[in-house]
Amino acid sequence: MIRDLLIISIGAILINNFVLVQFLGICPFLGVSKKVETAFGMGMAVIFVMLCASALTWIVQKYLLDPFGLGYLQTIAFILVIAVLVQLVEMFLQKSVPSLYNSLGVYLPLITTNCAVLGVAIQNITKFGTAEMSFLKSLTYGTSAAIGFTLAIVLFAGVRERLETSDIPDFLKGMPIVLVTAALLSIAFLGFSGLSFQ
């Protein structure tokens, strides 16, 4: 069992990293990665949202949607759950860490429509279903995906901080070099696809 969870976890963090391999959640990945500090804060917010979203969407799927055959309402129901969670995180941050709240800016409410969060919720259901042990697996997958997101965004922010002071050719200044860097990081993460647990 533990072995299963570990495989799921490493798979979501490294091999199928949400941002760098599955290309989900690119928006905050590019938007909030100017400073390591805010990137880390964003990562923490995403970890919280994804963990709670995994748990809640599993419950919604198992006890509300499945028994009544309402699987087609999955997307709207999940978005509802995620939106509420993001609102909660936003209120909490505004109250207790206003500096982080200000630096995250518009990207915080944007987690609501972040495809990474919805992606994790839907992948949970398609991958593990709602059968036995799937709750634990969903939680593990959700948390690991968010840890993977945090890892990617913090690494990327570190590179971007260095870029600030480096001598970049004029035609690459600004977004182009950022996208090139993201692509290189993505290639680096593709190296993990060789990992196998058979």
Binding site: V60, L64, F68, L70, I76, L80, V81, L88
Partner: peptide, 18 residues
């Protein structure tokens, strides 16, 4: 009706929570 009830109920519950 069921779909409306469930989504509406969820909306109400979350609204109250928020």
């Amino acid at each position: 009706l069921l779909a409306v009830l469930i989504i509406g109920g969820m909306g109400l519950l979350f609204g109250a929570l928020l």
